[in-house]
Amino acid sequence: NQASVVANQLIPINTALTLVMMRSEVVTPVGIPADDIPRLVSMQVNRAVPLGTTLMPDMVKGYP
């Protein structure tokens, strides 16, 4: 099973992602692959992302 990117904390709308905000976890449904975490750094979320939420491609501005 492939690990996905999961919010490690509440991420407010328009926040630029940092490594501490994300963790990898095997979840269903599958979200953004954990391998993409380095690419996500400094990209902004377009909505508030609660703790434990799987990051989906449509939540991150400019992804992929």
Rank of each mutant, 00 (worst) to 15 (best):
P38Q: 13
T53G: 11
T54Y: 00
I11Q: 01
M21P: 03
D36H: 15
D35Y: 09
P50L: 15
Q2H: 14
T18P: 00
V60Q: 01
Q9A: 11
P64V: 15
S24D: 12
G62D: 09
R23F: 06
P12E: 06
V26L: 14
P64G: 15
R39H: 11
M22L: 14
Q44L: 07
L19C: 15
L10Q: 12
A48L: 10
Q44R: 08
L10W: 08
L40S: 00
V41Y: 04
L55F: 09
M22F: 15
L19R: 10
A16V: 12
V49S: 01
M22I: 11
V27L: 04
R47M: 12
M21A: 04
V30M: 13
G52A: 07
V60A: 00
R47E: 13
K61F: 10
I32P: 00
D58L: 08
V49C: 05
Q44V: 13
P38A: 10
T28F: 09
P64I: 15
P33K: 07
N1K: 05
R23V: 12
G52I: 02
V5K: 00
V30L: 12
I37P: 00
S24P: 07
L51A: 12
P57N: 07
I11C: 03
Q9S: 08
P64C: 15
G31W: 02
T53W: 08
V20T: 11
V49P: 01
L51N: 12
N8I: 06
L55D: 02
S4Y: 03
L55W: 01
K61I: 11
I11F: 02
N1H: 08
Q2S: 15
P38D: 11
M59K: 01
V49Q: 02
Q9N: 09
L51C: 05
A16K: 09
M56C: 09
N46S: 15
D58F: 10
V6D: 00
R23T: 10
A7H: 01
V6H: 02
V60I: 11
P38T: 12
T15V: 12
Q9H: 12
G31K: 00
P50G: 11
Y63T: 04
N46A: 14
A16T: 09
M22A: 02
Q44W: 09
V49N: 01
E25W: 06
T18L: 10
S4R: 02
Y63M: 07
P29G: 03
T28S: 08
P12V: 05
S4G: 05
S24N: 12
